[in-house]
Design a protein around this nucleic acid. Structure first.
Lengths: 193, 193
DNA sequence: GATGATATGTAGCAGTCGCTACATAAGCGC
DNA sequence: GCGCTTATGTAGCGACTGCTACATATCATC
């Protein structure tokens, strides 16, 4: 019983490696099994079906991502400074496999396919909470909405980078290449009440 | 010769319908052929291979999208007013199939797969030009960078909606449901030089 | 040492994928 | 009518998909 759970966990971690390197298109049973040094037969011995197996694997990926993000940006900053920082963080090499996977999840979620819709939604919630926690706001009531706007813009830059338009990201952040971002340019005024 | 090109074009339009309704995952030869009332054999008679066939089809989809966008939002507005308008436009029902396809393209492009990378890039360029043309700026030099930022944010809301987080989109735009967007809330100051 | 649970290998099913070989039809100029 | 180009049907290939039936190994317990 316990050995079984341990084995499952080990398989999940190895499958997470594989999914991160080849994405969902390459996540079919036989290649996944090969990456674990086992057989498709055994994967379906430890998991009910491919859905359960993938859910567990994507859960592990999400956990790694959470860890990665928490370690990467401890600082707290206002909107204008946080946006370019997070965008640069998302452009960093270690994030690439996660963001590729993220876009694949978003595409599947957009067609209401389970378990991808649920998993992508949870990841999105995590992103928002992570962003909100790092956002410095002058009016606490604005935290969530400001974080949402920030998250949306960051997600957009991820898409633009995915389609090979880094130049648009740079323009959006108001940077020339080799130039530090100019936070003043990105200041976002609070709604007057 | 001419009949052949006409036939190709007719097939492309029917395939565009099909791809818009089921997306790239459903875009395999036999279903595509069935949607055209023909056979996979004939598709590969009129097109060299699946890549050429899909490129032509996605080109037709892009043309339709351009037409749809140009017809949808003739007005010109400053950043703060344009953002919520475009976001609402993207949330409209007729856009849904295009945006689902767009996310699938972005995911494939993110893995550098051709022809998707090229097509998605061109679509992105079109989006930017379309946005920039509708943007009212006080300083012409800022047009492209402001449009880029706007586009990024819009793309982000598309992703958030795809993963079932309309609430985040609403929060980002500073709207309560059933409330008109408040443009003042979204004003973005120009960089001081 | 027999028995039953846990684990693993082998083989295969029925389906889909992109693509192709081969044959046959249909039209059209000579 | 003949032959040539254009169009279409039939059938299948080899690879891959998720999944399963069946047999066998390993090992702890009684």
């Amino acid at each position: 019983m316990k050995g079984r759970d341990a084995r499952r966990q080990a398989l999940v971690e190895q499958m997470a490696d594989h999914v991160l390197s080849v994405g969902l298109p390459g996540a079919s049973l036989r290649p996944l099994a090969a990456a674990c040094g086992t057989s498709d037969r055994m994967l379906l011995y430890y998991f009910a079906d491919k859905n359960e197996l993938l859910s567990a694997t994507l859960g592990a990926v999400a956990a790694r991502l959470t860890q990665l993000l928490d370690a990467a940006l401890p600082g707290i900053a206002p909107y204008a400074a946080l946006l370019p920082r997070i965008c640069r963080l998302m452009a960093a090499a270690p994030m690439k496999p996660y963001l590729q996977l993220w876009l694949e999840l978003a595409a599947l979620a957009s067609r209401q396919q389970e378990p991808y819709l649920t998993i992508a939604g949870q990841l999105g919630d995590g992103f928002l909470a992570w962003t909100a926690a790092r956002l410095e706001v002058s009016h606490e009531a604005d935290r969530l909405s400001t974080a949402s706007l920030l998250l949306a813009t960051v997600e957009g830059t991820v898409v633009l980078r995915a389609i090979g338009r880094e130049s648009m990201v740079a323009a959006a952040l108001g940077q020339r290449p080799d130039e530090e971002p100019n936070p003043a340019r990105l200041r976002r005024p609070r709604k007057s009440r």
